[in-house]
Design a binder for these strands. Structure first.
Lengths: 246, 246
DNA sequence: CGCTTGATTGAAGAAACTCAAGGAAGGTGG
DNA sequence: CCACCTTCCTTGAGTTTCTTCAATCAAGCG
């Protein structure tokens, strides 16, 4: 998508001197946020920044042994698995400041692929070391527990609450959730564009690409979104909100 | 459902002297399993056994402040929330040895109701104390992290992987998953009966009661399950397995 | 320039839903 | 003990929604 090499926010965790976490879009979802300098330094000592991953490149694969959690620094990541029928299933999307790989905790291997959707930098947190550090820094332990709880809530909400809804509502809920989470940069007009292919969105929402396309066309006709082929923009409005939640 | 007062397995956590966890049906999902006597005693010191909850009685409600995690000792629990449209949504079921309430970690309140489906005893683990104890007992911390990871995996699998499947497969996957998890006692013939109302199952699977009923009738006609009005039994077989996974 | 990939649109089909009625089981009160 | 009621499950008929299949179109890339 974006071809320009991003300026990676390496310092979010890696240096510890600057707590960039506090300026992060998804502040409360970043493990380092809220720690003091000393604690941040300890966290930085076990973490490694990796990247840039090119679009389509894997950060980990389902065959890999589980060894680390990851935090998105710049870019966007999709996590996908394979259905029993053999086709791709999108488990979730992760953006700047968000942690992924947690579903493998306690398992010997990752059970899905994590793939960059655009040029992406991540911060790797070796799990053993992280767990050990949690035993020494109560604030970090607290934070990680909190993050896990949040992730469980998130998954439940996204999956349970939109299942059974008609396609259009599912789309609007998806867009609203993304909008509220503030993980995607907005343009001047307050709109944001998705770095996710429509195929992936469809898959994540449990729809066929065709069904998503139809829903998007309809929503665009109603004026609540813009739908430019490879680009979706949410037009924030009362109408949009109502379509999502009512 | 069952009217006889259950013999609660209080000692699973409460006494610590006997590590009944090791004989628990869902051994790996019980926080106490794998700890030594001293550690178990510490865990027991912060935990309280509560019950019996009568069928339909709430262990916590969505209005309640989040304060504790719970482990099912005897019985069965459903966790349900409310959709934007106002009707009930079943988030999940929990059986003997399984921990619930974790989706509220890091939140100020529970966001759903936990309701006993049959006469139920639970073990309450005050979250603050548990977290504090985790900082002192690395094995416990490890265990809790593992449990949370497992729960995230579980939710993903149950929700992502059966979405989009036809009703019959959804039912079979649900039954197989339950069967494999070994959380429900089996009768002499190796079959197990569900202490869950069909309405709740339908809701959990994202189906209308009518659709579930039709699916069950069809599966019963094919001989892979028994469907006695208030009772579903899975007839373990190669056919059943294939229907679920192929 | 032609090839590939992803998005769109149309028409026909299948699956689940809604609406409605009927039936079995459990609980309550006479 | 039986009648009644409520609740939950079942079954049927018609409709909505999404899917499937197929063709078209646009964009990116060799």
């Amino acid at each position: 998508m974006t071809t320009e090499k991003p300026e990676p926010r390496l310092r979010v965790i890696a240096s510890g001197a600057r707590t960039d976490c506090d300026q992060c879009e998804a502040r409360d979802r970043c493990p380092g946020a809220g720690l003091n300098d000393e604690q941040l330094k300890a966290l930085a000592a076990i973490s490694t920044t990796r990247g840039p991953y090119k679009p389509g490149e894997a950060i980990y694969r389902m065959e890999d042994r589980f060894h680390s959690l990851f935090v998105v620094q710049t870019g966007a990541v999709k996590v996908e698995s394979v259905s029993d029928e053999g086709d791709a299933l999108v488990d979730g999307f992760y953006f700047s400041g968000e942690m992924f790989g947690v579903d493998a905790i306690g398992d010997s291997r990752y059970r899905n692929d994590a793939v960059a959707m655009e040029s992406t930098w991540v911060c790797e947190l070796p799990y053993d070391k992280l767990e050990h550090l949690c035993g020494q820094i109560p604030e970090l332990q607290h934070k990680i527990f909190k993050l896990l709880g949040h992730q469980i809530r998130q998954i439940n909400n996204n999956l349970v609450h939109n299942r059974g809804l008609p396609a259009e509502k599912r789309v609007m809920m998806f867009l609203q959730t993304l909008s509220e989470s503030n993980v995607i940069r907005r343009n001047e007009a307050g709109r944001f564009r998705l770095p996710i292919s429509k195929g992936d969105i469809a898959c994540y929402l449990g729809l066929r690409p065709e069904s998503l396309s139809r829903a998007l066309s309809k929503l665009a006709a109603e004026g609540v979104i813009r739908n430019n082929a490879k680009l979706i923009e949410l037009v924030e409005s009362e109408t949009a909100f109502e379509l999502a939640y009512k």
